[in-house]
């Protein structure tokens, strides 16, 4: 939406090839320039901190989503996984922080395993398979937490959620580290290459000796583990655990970040940095709108337009 005004001289076909690749970065740049010029207090440390802290959980969840979408799948259960991870923290905090974190990560592994088995073994469509745990996961989280908001007081968790390291929030460090890990997995590992091949052409990957089921199960587990990390970080940040609100609707934010970042829903391609940029862009849009006292409804419509532009651009590239 912003790139056209940036370079009106560009002809349409070149723009179409360029847009899905770099459009998201250009849009971020435009927004930042605009905000520096017109938004008071935008360039303050406090504001940047808040933006980054808010976007971190979405980035973490979106990373897993990008991997799943790369296999031509989708995972709707990420928000419920976050709730489940959050609900387990106060329950196991008695065994120490490490124990509690380990348990909530294990819950992620379990959900991912079920998703993966349903998709890879049983052969359900990903949207249906993960819908089951989207509904059931949050239900289970509510049962575990007894439906109550629980305060969580633990110094180590507080450090994870609101601490600083070298002047940067720990939360942001964790998100950045996970971005690097996922980028590394996609680019450098056998698992990453196989994942892309499966998304690009599953029967071909199968015939080429790729263990399709194993890789798919692994992808769903990875996605769920990332979601549970986001869930326990959410608990650490707000120092309470509320299974009914943690991670609500985050699956949509994550899918948006992935799509706006230029990863096609048709699989075979994962853009890790693009996904991060997608999440940042949506965050910036919301922040800009709020700073200028626009209605939330307006913000939502602007977000809708961005998603449409991103999907349209991706479609153009696909058909070439």
């Amino acid at each position: 939406m912003t790139t056209e005004t940036l370079k009106p001289a560009l002809d349409l076909t070149r723009l179409k090839a360029w847009l899905p690749k770099y459009g998201v970065y250009a849009a971020i740049l435009v927004l930042i320039v605009y905000n520096i010029a017109f938004t008071p207090n935008f360039l303050t440390l406090g504001n940047l901190r808040i933006q980054l802290i808010q976007v971190a959980p979405i980035v973490i969840v979106a990373l897993g989503m990008a991997l799943v979408i790369g296999t031509e799948g989708i995972d709707l259960s990420v928000g419920s996984v976050m709730a489940l991870a959050a609900a387990l923290i106060p329950l196991y905090l008695g065994y120490g922080v490490v124990g509690a974190i380990a348990v909530s990560l294990l819950a992620g592994v379990a959900v991912g395993l079920v998703n993966g088995l349903l998709v890879a073994r049983v052969g359900l469509q990903p949207i249906v398979a993960t819908l089951a745990l989207f509904v059931g996961g949050r239900g289970l989280a509510l049962v575990i937490s007894g439906g109550q908001l629980k305060d969580v007081r633990n110094d180590d968790l507080v450090f994870l959620g609101s601490g600083d390291l070298l002047g940067v929030p720990v939360l942001v460090w964790i998100a950045a580290a996970l971005v690097l890990v996922v980028a590394f997995v996609v680019r450098r590992t056998v698992f990453g290459r196989r994942l892309l091949a499966i998304g690009g052409n599953r029967p071909a990957a199968q015939l080429a000796g790729v263990p399709v089921q194993r890789v798919l199960i692994g992808v769903y587990i990875l996605c769920a583990v990332l979601a549970s990390i986001a869930g326990l970080l959410a608990v650490a940040r707000i120092q309470s655990s509320d299974a009914s609100s943690v991670g609500l609707l985050i699956e949509l934010s994550a899918i948006t970040a992935v799509v706006v970042g230029g990863t096609p829903l048709t699989g075979g391609k994962v853009r890790v940095l693009g996904t991060v940029a997608g999440a940042l862009l949506m965050q910036l849009v919301v922040a800009t709108m709020i700073k200028h006292n626009l209605q939330p409804s307006t913000t939502e419509m602007v977000q809708a337009v961005i998603i449409l532009v991103a999907v349209y651009a991706a479609r153009e590239r696909k058909s070439r």
Binding site: L196, N201, A204, L207, G268
Partner: peptide
């Protein structure tokens, strides 16, 4: 096309 190459790679 269907079972051999991965066209997008």
């Amino acid at each position: 096309k269907a079972e051999g190459i991965v066209a997008g790679l």
